[in-house]
Design a protein around this nucleic acid. Structure first.
Lengths: 113, 113
DNA sequence: CAGAATCCACCAGGATACTG
DNA sequence: CAGTATCCTGGTGGATTCTG
C-alpha cells in the first residue's frame, strides 16, 4: 500500500499520531514490552472500551509507520508482544508532554484515571 | 455546551489537538497574531485546501478549549485576529516537537512545504 | 490468546452558495 | 473580509460473531 504523502512536518507527525487509541497505546508502551492482552487491559479504563478489532487496526498502523515492533512467539496459545522501536523512541517526549500538559491544564476535565 | 470529559491526561491533550487543521493552525500562530485570511493563506499549501467553514470551525474549537484568543475589530471591512493565549503557550513545545520530529523522521514522505 | 470477518452508524470534513 | 447556511460523502470507529 502506497504511504500517504504530506506537505509539512507538523502535518506528517500529527497524522501519524491521529487515531482514537494511538497516543494511548504509545503511552501504555512507555516502559517496555506489552502483550496484546495487556494493552487491551491498560486501555480498559477508557470508554467506549476498545474492541479487539480496533486494537489490532491501530497496532498495525503504528507498526506500518515504524513506531512499534511486533514479535510473535510460535506457541499455543499464541503470544504476541509489542515494543516501541528504538528509532522511534524519540517520539516519546511528545506523548510525555501530552501527559504532563494534560495533567496540568485539563485536570478539571479528567474524570478518574 | 457541556465539555467532554476524559479518563486520562494523554487522552485529553490528544483530543484537544485532534482535528485535521488544528496542529497546523497552532503552528501557523507560533510567532504571533494572524488574521483570519492570513491563516487561510498559510494553510493554502495543504490539500485539499481548507474551506472557510472548516477554518471557522476549528478556530472556534481551539478558542473553546482556551488555546487561542479571538479579537474582533469593529471596522468595515471586518478584521479578526487570532493569537495563542498566554496560558496555553505551554502547548507550543509539543507542536514544535511535532515539527522537529517530522522533519527528521518523515522527510521522505513530505512533498514540498 | 490474539486475532479475522462482517456489518453498520455516525460525524468530521468537504463542496458550494450566500452575506453583514 | 470573515464569516453562515446547506447539503453531502467517506471512512473512522464500534458491535458482534467466529477461529487457528
Amino acid at each position: 500500500m502506497q504511504k500517504k504523502k504530506y506537505h509539512g512536518p507538523v502535518e506528517a507527525t500529527a497524522d501519524i499520531l491521529s487515531g482514537r487509541w494511538k497516543p494511548l497505546i504509545l503511552w501504555a508502551l512507555r516502559d517496555g514490552t506489552l502483550r496484546f492482552g495487556q494493552i487491551e487491559e491498560e486501555l480498559s479504563a477508557y470508554k467506549p472500551n476498545i474492541t479487539q478489532r480496533m486494537l489490532t487496526k491501530q497496532l498495525r498502523e503504528l507498526e506500518n509507520d515504524g513506531l512499534i515492533a511486533r514479535k510473535v512467539y510460535p506457541e499455543v496459545p499464541p503470544r504476541v508482544e509489542y515494543t516501541l522501536t528504538e528509532r522511534y523512541r524519540s517520539l516519546m517526549p511528545i506523548v510525555e508532554q501530552m501527559y504532563n500538559w494534560g495533567k496540568e491544564h485539563m485536570a478539571d476535565r479528567i474524570e478518574h484515571e
